[in-house]
Design a binder for these strands. Sequence first.
DNA 1: GTGAAAGCGCTAACAG
DNA 2: CTGTTAGCGCTTTCAC
Lengths: 349, 349
Amino acid sequence: MARRRQAVTIRHVSAAAGVSLQTVSRVINNEPNVRAETRDRVQAAIDSLGYVPSIAAQRMSGSRSYLILAINDRERTIADWQARQGTDWVDQMLLGGMLTCAEHGYRMIFELIDTHSDHVERELLAAIAALQPDGIILTPPHSDNPQIVDLLAEQDMPFVRIGSQRQDAGIAVSMDDAGSAATATRHLIDHGHRRIACIAGASDYELSGWRVDGWRAAMAEAGLDTAGLLDAGDFSHASGRAAALRLLARPDRPTAIIASNDQMAIATLAVAREQGLGVPDDLSIISFDNTPIVQFAQPPLTAIDQSIAATASTAVELIIAHLKGAPPPASLTSVPSTLISRASVARHG
Amino acid sequence: MARRRQAVTIRHVSAAAGVSLQTVSRVINNEPNVRAETRDRVQAAIDSLGYVPSIAAQRMSGSRSYLILAINDRERTIADWQARQGTDWVDQMLLGGMLTCAEHGYRMIFELIDTHSDHVERELLAAIAALQPDGIILTPPHSDNPQIVDLLAEQDMPFVRIGSQRQDAGIAVSMDDAGSAATATRHLIDHGHRRIACIAGASDYELSGWRVDGWRAAMAEAGLDTAGLLDAGDFSHASGRAAALRLLARPDRPTAIIASNDQMAIATLAVAREQGLGVPDDLSIISFDNTPIVQFAQPPLTAIDQSIAATASTAVELIIAHLKGAPPPASLTSVPSTLISRASVARHG
DNA sequence: GTGAAAGCGCTAACAG
DNA sequence: CTGTTAGCGCTTTCAC
């Protein structure tokens, strides 16, 4: 392969504009101490030559890399991709993240990292060393993985923790898990339900706990008992199925179930059907995530929609603001979620 | 922000191993002319220090960037993301592309570029200048966009054209559009159909043409007439709807329709239902793409599945082989597709 | 305001 | 087989 060189460099621009490299650099980086007239002349040269700075060179000289790393869990992401069930978490992240990056002249690089592996640290450090990103976006379950969080904090790497509530390190952006679980619960209570069960998500995701908390809080607020109404899943269809079977086998079976994700909600729907229970008449269901799949269920499921795109976009904004020297947000940033009402909730009693 | 420097550089390694920078470089790049013992010593130092080369520095010194750019159409990709219909083209690309890149020590960077804009060239050149990728993967409709293809050829940039048949520049990787359309057509012919219609895709996608060609060829091969059985869509639901309406309004209406993508197939299904036509008994449907959505249709749609993941993976392999100096493939590389049989095709007559 | 010099981490080209 | 030298394109630091 031929040695690939930059087509047009800062040198060409400086020659064309008749100024020093330094002045061109100042114009590129919007720095002060350039006369308006000089700035215009340089900008004209940049435009006419079609000059774009090499991020490799910018990074080399100790400045920004204009790269933001978005890190997702390898195992789960690949499983979702292979399952082809329409899970669009990654797409929504890119939608919110990439586009917002682009607006600010940054680029988002998407990386997969194993949470469970004993060499998370090595993997992460390798990605950082290779790419030298200006910031990192952590998604669950990485957001609350102490190994990762501590490592980034030590490295002084700016990072956002999506779906986290902890404000000890990095910048947390909550997706209001507790609040939206409470919203879902209240929605059911308003429809006359009293025995509202909850199927929790995988325990290595802190958000699983927040969702349970929200459900519990809304139940308590309405003076309703939650004993025997909580069952544990791990976000998989199989676990949702098992939980639904247990819940619906109870003598005082719940009249409504909140599942902590769509797969488990779909599994619950299937179990109800098998048992001759009509949805929503005999059993109401609300799911979490609102991936495309739930629109196609029979009946379409009422679901909590946490805007991943908005969250990713916020995460990028926060990192870039931080890079520009803005102080960290005073309070926990929280991106609101919405309850999308479909046909899986009916009035009870 | 503190000036962020590489934590451990080649210099640290060379000091630790007691060799020159160059020798370390040789070990990193698996180059010859290093004694096994020296190599081991250097490798040990690399491992114990957790050294990972900076790709920025590697790029700077005129070598590889270990970056492969995957370019998709901005407008369509964003529309798909926003529609949240479960279209998983991007996910499948990442699945095949990112993982294969990782296996070879490369990284895939995902970019969106407008095909239709009059500044495609500027956009592309900017991405190349900023990122300095070692290779580029073009997806439809970029793969056959002469502005883009010519530009890359001029730049001597290695690139793969996914879904293209043209072998004039870059490396084409066909998804066998004609072949799979023929397969779908034959499948219907085998089920006794004679009047098999085809709804074509957007005309700015060359693959739309290949699909029509395949259908036409299989029809001709079976001695069947295609007059009046071809209608044009643009991949949108609305266009599929319009085409289906026209097709089904014919006095000798088709007994089967092949739609060039899932959205148009779903639209066709809806039109059939409105007109009181049972699917598959009164009308058989085969769709293209096999996105998750078609499994959830009523009935689930028989579809052509072109493995995007396998195609992306092949694309990456071809680029990397090319970078290593391998000669370009002698004949057009084609990734086979499969007909996934579901419930939207019935025997006719 | 502007410019000159030095160096980021790495590899190419050449010595030995 | 191994080491030395000279940059890559840009920003930093410091001089003017």
